[in-house]
Design a protein around this nucleic acid. Structure first.
Lengths: 245, 245
DNA sequence: CGATTGCTTGACGGGGCTCAATCTCCGTGG
DNA sequence: CCACGGAGATTGAGCCCCGTCAAGCAATCG
């Protein structure tokens, strides 16, 4: 069985890998490893660190749900097609984030997830899980806690997005990326913007020109620094101030 | 034990009550009733049809989570206070809707819920549940399905709100109320607007003047009719068209 | 080295926010 | 019974943020 909580071996900041103990899927992994009487069972359910290419699909909307995923390294975006046929980015996933929980209930995925860069993913096949027993009960408990957390986080994110102006939305977005990065044991102050400006704009409900303009304004304010796709958070308190009011 | 799926006895449209079989909590109620070896246990966990006054709090933000609720009749609003101290309406609950799932993970409620009118609520004390056994396993399964559904619904609602203009947001809001009403066995075409214009504005991220103006414009278009706090959906297809584009 | 893709910057117009006045209901009390 | 007051809703006037259109710039790739 693979050792959890090993340290990431990579130094390149753009290829940072989350440690298992900081990963959102870890509570489930623990349960599976613990609950499986035979280590071979664990292998059936968990497939760790599968590599993925930039642009590759993790799963598509309307595809039947079969597994939960966690980002080990790299990043992903979720794209949803609304009733009028327009694509919209509904989320970004960083190392340690859980992907696919939205399909548990309906057994069908409600959006498409695509790799934004070369990434690695851990996969847990819930289909293969034993349907009862003590292990299953613990697994369910962990699932409930994770889903509940997702519900309240979504509420917060939505709240802040809906009635804020462009500066507030973008500042909140940067701080959110930063906090999530820090929570997973990666740098809070140096973020890799693997997504395009258009992706950010779509996610925030803005025009991509507005995102561009706001980024440069933040740079002029001395709040951030951008070169290419690396964003440096220079003045987090300042960004925080922008989101208020 | 109380019989489920009885028909509502009330005729007054403003006091419509959801039947148990149409209620969002019913899957859980079923499990509890079924799983309890002693009917007395069921009474401990479920408290049906508790009356509540207009303005009364169901629970407050930061209060420890202890129970799930379902609206039997009437309506509620959820209010969240963001970091800058401003109140914001984050949701409305109609008969049949489930309240409180957002607190399951953290064991703490993340917003405040207040009755918008004279209402009745069913309460399920999850604290009192047996911690294991077959009944518990089924309960957990039902919880997972409900939470998963809430996650994907939230995604859809957020998506539609974030990047639509005032007419689109309000049309989507009306259609959403209408659909939820219909889903629970109530009228799709005659809706009681128990919340204030300010509440709607806060929820949709608009100014209350904009909500007012848009309502009257919809009335001029022949899409809806409003008198006092009763909204008639005259032309649902027309409203649908507004949300598209 | 041209072509493509993505990002930035400018000019302009419109949708919605703000401020403010008026109107409609209610509930209360004289 | 009506007068009064207050809360909520409606309507108008003006301004600003941001979406749209368009051009120019930077980076990547065949």
């Amino acid at each position: 069985m693979e050792t959890c909580c090993q340290q990431p071996e990579v130094d390149d900041p753009s290829r940072q890998e989350v440690a298992c103990c900081d990963c959102g899927l870890d509570p489930l992994c623990q349960v599976v490893d613990y609950g499986a009487s035979d280590p071979a069972d664990s292998k059936l359910v968990l497939r760790r660190r599968q590599p993925m290419q930039r642009g590759e699909l993790l799963f598509s909307a309307k595809q039947p749900f079969s597994a939960l995923f966690a980002v080990k390294s790299g990043s992903f975006k979720a794209i949803s097609v609304d009733l009028s046929g327009k694509e919209r980015v509904v989320g970004f996933y960083l190392p340690g984030d859980l992907i696919g929980a939205e399909g548990i209930a309906s057994r069908v995925h409600s959006f498409t997830v695509r790799a934004l860069e070369e990434s690695a993913i851990c996969r847990m096949d819930l289909d293969q899980m034993p349907q009862s027993g003590r292990g299953n009960e613990m697994l369910q408990g962990a699932l409930i806690r994770m889903l509940g957390e997702e519900v309240s986080i979504n509420h917060l994110v939505t709240s802040s997005l809906i009635q804020q102006n462009a500066e507030q939305r973008l500042a909140a977005f940067i701080l959110n990326l930063s906090a999530r990065s820090g929570m997973r044991g990666l740098s809070q102050y140096q973020l890799g913007l693997s997504m395009s400006r258009s992706d950010i704009a779509s996610y925030l409900g803005l025009a991509r020109e507005t995102v561009s303009r706001t980024f440069t304004r933040f740079q002029n304010y001395g709040l951030i620094g951008i070169s290419k796709h690396v964003l440096k958070v220079v003045n987090p308190e300042g960004l925080q101030k922008v989101t208020l009011v």
